[in-house]
């Protein structure tokens, strides 16, 4: 019996290894480009740095066909519902890359208009800091993402700026626009 279970473990783990290997070299990315980081994203994607070497050269502009969401550039509060919608439309398994310091923490835009880190809205797997990050930095982040995909790990935590701790994503679900309006009007 023990032999059987270890054999099945052996096969499933080999299977997931193979799947991870296949997935990490065929990243279909959705570039959610909003701001300055888009310029470095362009540079990384174009011939000079050539992100295609890592199997991530094919941007899909449909969230339903992509498995990595690149959030490139500042997310304002006006944009936040759009980002959440795009994330929700993506199929599992999905990963999120926060590209640039604005998406990681809000950067130096600590003001009324800007979301202080997209991890308050959607779970983030890889953070690439820099304002904007250099293409080398982006490629480094991409390789870290590949490692994560190989292991089959996905982030599920959201950051709560009020308590300053990460909480599982499902506990923060249901915080909607209509609820916000109700609260602010009462």
């Amino acid at each position: 019996m023990s032999f059987m279970s270890s054999a099945s473990n052996f096969f499933t783990s080999k299977m997931s290894d193979a799947l991870g290997w296949a997935r990490k070299y065929s990243i279909f990315q959705y570039p959610f480009v909003t701001a300055c980081c888009g310029m470095e994203y362009m540079s990384t994607a174009a011939g000079h740095y050539d992100v295609d070497r890592f199997g991530a050269g094919f941007p899909r502009f449909s969230p339903r066909q992509s498995d990595v969401l690149f959030v490139v550039g500042t997310i304002s509060h006006k944009m936040a519902p759009v980002l959440k919608t795009v994330y929700d439309q993506m199929c599992e398994p999905k990963w999120v890359v926060a590209f640039g310091v604005c998406t990681c923490t809000g950067g130096f835009y600590d003001n009324y208009a800007t979301v202080m880190g997209i991890d308050t809205i959607i779970p983030v797997d890889i953070y690439i800091p820099g304002c904007p990050p250099r293409p080398e930095n982006v490629i480094d982040g991409l390789m870290k993402l590949q490692e994560k995909i190989q292991k089959g790990e996905q982030s599920r935590t959201l950051y709560d700026p009020r308590t300053k701790i990460g909480r599982p994503a499902h506990l923060q679900q249901g915080y909607s626009v209509s609820q916000h309006i109700k609260e602010s009007s009462s």
Binding site: T34, A35, G73, T74, S76, K78, M79, V82, F108, Y109, N111, Y112, A113, T114
Partner: peptide
Amino acid sequence: IGYLHRAFEKM
């Protein structure tokens, strides 16, 4: 417009 309003003038 306004999806990338980052409050330049206020900052």
